[in-house]
Computed example of a mutant assay.
Amino acid sequence: MRREWEDEFAAWARSRQGALLRAAVLLTGDEASAQDLVQGALIKVADRWGRLREERPDAYARRIMYHDAVSVWRRHGRVEPRAEVPDRPVGDASEGWVAGADVRQALMTLTPKQRAVLVLRYYEDLPEAEIADALGVGVGTVKSQAHVALRRLREAMGRAGATPSGGGPGGL
């Protein structure tokens, strides 16, 4: 990789790492797996930076993350989320993190593809066409997966004694 490309990639990765990690935590249910997912995606983006730098590296990184998350699930089966107390203080964001715990737990009851659709739609705020492109599926599949996922999320939240605000997965 050329030196100028390395600097561009490093700047891009630093600027996107936080957002990618937050989305990955929602996909995987734990921070360690999320970090692995983001690291793998960043490595793949770096390998193709010469081509991607002029195109859409964010979309490529998201696609890699979601495909890798599904691949891990297929290889190892569904892993139950762990309720762990963090080793370090969480800071001011702790109230928001705790408030969203029910939603994160309910997200883990969905299939990886359903979870990916909801994260891309409601957390990343992408339109259906971009979600379809990121996941390599049709727009109709995105719509049907979102419909089923929202229904299952509402059911899971109802069992937990809470309901997502606004009918969607608020609190993501």
Rank of each mutant, 00 (worst) to 15 (best):
R56K: 14
L153W: 02
V119Q: 07
E155L: 10
H67A: 15
P89I: 10
E55N: 09
E54Q: 08
V85S: 09
V117I: 08
D68A: 14
D47A: 15
P81H: 04
R48K: 14
V117R: 04
A59Q: 13
P127E: 12
R82L: 08
L126R: 08
V137T: 06
E84T: 14
R78I: 07
T109P: 00
G77D: 01
R88Q: 14
Q114S: 07
K143W: 05
A134V: 15
A160F: 00
L153Q: 01
D58W: 12
P112T: 05
A156C: 02
A134F: 00
R53L: 11
S144A: 10
L110A: 03
A93T: 12
P127G: 09
A59I: 11
I64Q: 14
R48L: 07
V119A: 05
V139A: 14
L118Y: 05
P81Q: 07
A69F: 01
G77S: 03
G91Q: 05
V117H: 07
L118C: 02
P81F: 13
T141C: 05
A59H: 08
S71K: 15
D58C: 08
R88A: 12
H76I: 11
I43D: 13
L120F: 06
L150W: 00
R75N: 11
K44G: 11
R104C: 04
R53S: 14
D87G: 05
D133G: 10
A83T: 15
P81K: 10
E124K: 08
V148Y: 11
Y66T: 14
A99T: 01
R151P: 01
A134L: 01
R104L: 11
Q114Y: 04
R104T: 07
R78L: 08
R78S: 07
V117C: 09
G91D: 08
A160S: 09
P81D: 06
A46Q: 11
I131Y: 05
A134Y: 02
P81M: 09
V139K: 14
R121T: 10
K44Q: 15
M157V: 00
R78V: 14
V72H: 08
T141A: 15
M157P: 00
H147S: 13
L110M: 05
A106L: 07
A116Y: 01
A132L: 05
A134H: 02
A149S: 00
A134I: 13
A46E: 14
R104Q: 09
S94Q: 13
G140K: 03
E95L: 12
